[in-house]
């Protein structure tokens, strides 16, 4: 049943959620969009980050603090992953297509099953002062605090990473490595080291995003599958490697999803991101902001 109140509510929710989607996708925008690594396992790292946050929250940690603490751990994990990927595939070039994809698919699958074996298939959630409360604007429009906290953190994360890539020396080197490796090596930087660093950053950011994931709502090991669609949809929609595009694309997905959710029911929600992704691939694969 259409009503303006519902629509406005959906829009507000969508924008808040969209910012969160940008935050969970920005790591992928870096690893896949800029570095061209077929990182299908990105959503699994996200869910792993959420579970690590849950585990730390068990000791009374605040989820966001836990996420920040996990970031350096995930950074190292990301560096190791990239080193492995580089040594196994990228160094030899040619066959990285099939093998690289199968590798990350396998890794994603292993993470998911390990999470099931360790934590079981039940949903997990965390507690914090801002979870469970809401701010009531009108009777129809109540915005949960958790969504606002996640929104603020996501916005900071996304803008922070965009600034890092645009303003710092290392950030510029990361952008350069995506465009012209030869020019970069002429500048005296080692492309492999730069990529390794960038992949570390991407994974660290994913840990924080994972903390946001469990703040937003309960998490189960199979959540990664849905987020394959959401994250790749955002990255493709944005145009590969476009950081500012990632934010806009996240907002578009967030709004689209909440509108479908509001007017057609929650059971259709999973198809929104994947449907949008398919349409995008068919119509404009270079994305909204791609060249």
């Amino acid at each position: 049943m259409f009503s303006w109140d519902l629509l406005i509510g959906a829009l507000v929710f969508g924008l808040l959620l969209g910012c969160f989607y940008a935050a969970v996708s920005i790591g992928l925008s870096l690893s896949f969009g800029l570095l061209d690594v077929p990182h299908i396992a990105h959503p699994s790292f996200l869910v792993a980050g959420a579970y690590a946050t849950w585990w730390l929250a068990g000791f009374g940690w605040d989820p966001i603090l836990a996420g920040l603490f996990l970031a350096p751990v995930f950074f190292v994990l990301g560096v190791v992953m990239y080193r492995l990927y580089y040594a196994m595939f990228e160094k030899h070039g040619s066959d990285a297509g099939l093998r690289g994809l199968a590798f990350f698919f396998g890794v994603a699958f292993i993470i998911e099953v390990c999470l099931i074996l360790v934590f079981g298939v039940d949903q997990r959630l965390v507690e914090a002062v801002y979870i469970g409360k809401s701010i009531d604007f009108t009777d129809d429009l109540r915005i949960p605090m958790r969504l606002l906290v996640a929104f603020a953190a996501a916005l900071l994360l996304t803008i922070g990473l965009t600034l890092y890539l645009g303003k710092t020396y290392m950030g510029r080197a990361i952008k350069a490595v995506a465009q012209d490796q030869i020019a970069l090596s002429l500048m005296g930087a080692d492309p492999v080291k730069v990529k390794q660093w960038a992949f570390g950053i991407a994974t660290a950011v994913t840990a924080i995003a994972g903390a946001l994931l469990i703040i937003i709502g309960p998490v189960d090991p199979q959540l990664g599958r849905i987020y394959i669609g959401r994250t790749f949809c955002v990255v493709v929609l944005a145009g590969l490697g476009s950081m500012s595009g990632t934010l806009v694309a996240g907002l578009i997905l967030g709004v689209a999803e909440t509108i479908v959710l509001t007017f057609f029911g929650a059971s259709w929600a999973p198809a929104v991101a994947f449907g949008l992704l398919l349409v995008m691939l068919g119509v404009r694969p270079q994305g909204l902001f791609g060249r």
Binding site: F32, P38, I40, G97, L98, L101, R225, I226, I228, G229, F232, V236, P270, A271, F274, G275, L277, L278, L281, P285
Partner: peptide, 15 residues
Amino acid sequence: RGIFFSIATVAVAIV
């Protein structure tokens, strides 16, 4: 590129 085909197959499965 190949990865887009792969992602599209995941997408079709979920849709």
